[in-house]
């Protein structure tokens, strides 16, 4: 039987609004294996950001299960979900990714500090990872002294340094030009494959799907289509429609 790093079962998220009940996520079930990089795409309001928040243990679903390494995030206490975020999940955001008063290497080491893993080996790994991401000369630069692309690469290093089971990226290329966006996502995908993490990237830019193994398309809260195989994905990329 295949085991997945991440598995969701019939996840539902509803909100109460003045106009009635809004079904932000509607019965979504998905599986992501270790070393698999998946894109979550869909138009605005399709529920992909809500789904990402649920997968990141930042939001409780109304019903359903989210199994990360076999542990159900949906039934955990707040404190346990904070621990899961710290130990098992890596996260990069659209912007404001880094702690502005910590240097590049300190930002990466922060994850090791929080996980009580900052030893000599950890420090060396942080430097090596940043060097691999082309930031060997920027180790001691503050975020304000780096470009958007460089900041995103530091965020990628931070998301991976503590060996999480799941790495999530929310629109990681939103503030980057095309060339830098390709570089960032390609590097991200390479590391996820190489380190055997389960990776999910939310993006509205279908061109970035070139580097993923599967594309999950959402609409009106539902998972409407799954693109697998290089050809199918490239067709989607070229077509530019969800």
């Amino acid at each position: 039987m295949t085991t997945y790093a991440l598995e969701t079962k019939s996840v539902v998220k509803t909100y109460q609004s003045d106009s009635g009940v809004i079904q932000a996520v509607d019965d979504v079930s998905l599986k992501v294996g270790a070393g698999e990089f998946v894109a979550l795409v869909g138009p605005s309001g399709s529920g992909k950001t809500t789904m990402l928040s649920i997968l990141a243990a930042l939001l409780q679903p109304t019903s359903g299960q989210i199994l990360l390494d076999g542990q159900d995030l949906a039934s955990m206490s707040d404190v346990d979900r904070v621990t899961m975020r710290r130990e098992k999940i890596g996260f990069t955001f659209q912007a404001n990714n880094l702690v502005p008063y910590l240097t590049a290497v300190e930002n990466v080491e922060l994850m090791l500090r929080l996980n009580k893993k900052l030893d000599k080996v950890g420090k060396l790994r942080a430097r090596e990872l940043l060097a691999r991401l082309g930031l060997g000369e920027r180790l001691h630069n503050l975020p304000g002294q780096m470009s958007g692309g460089q900041q995103q690469r530091v965020a990628i290093a931070r998301a991976l340094i503590h060996n999480p089971s799941l790495v999530l990226a929310d629109e990681p290329t939103a503030s980057l030009d095309t060339e830098r966006a390709y570089q960032v996502v390609e590097t991200f995908a390479g590391l996820i494959h190489e380190q055997g993490r389960a990776g999910i990237m939310v993006t509205h830019d279908l061109r970035m799907c070139e580097f993923v193994d599967r594309v999950l398309s959402m609409q009106d809260g539902k998972l409407v289509r799954i693109y697998t195989g290089k050809e199918e994905i490239m067709e989607l990329v070229k077509g530019g429609r969800h």
């Binding site: 904070v82 975020r85 404001n96 702690v99 994850m111």
Partner: peptide, 13 residues
């Protein structure tokens, strides 16, 4: 606020 949000999101209690 955003900076504290990031810290909390990455698992800072």
């Amino acid at each position: 606020v955003a900076q504290i949000g990031v810290l909390k999101a990455i698992g800072t209690a």
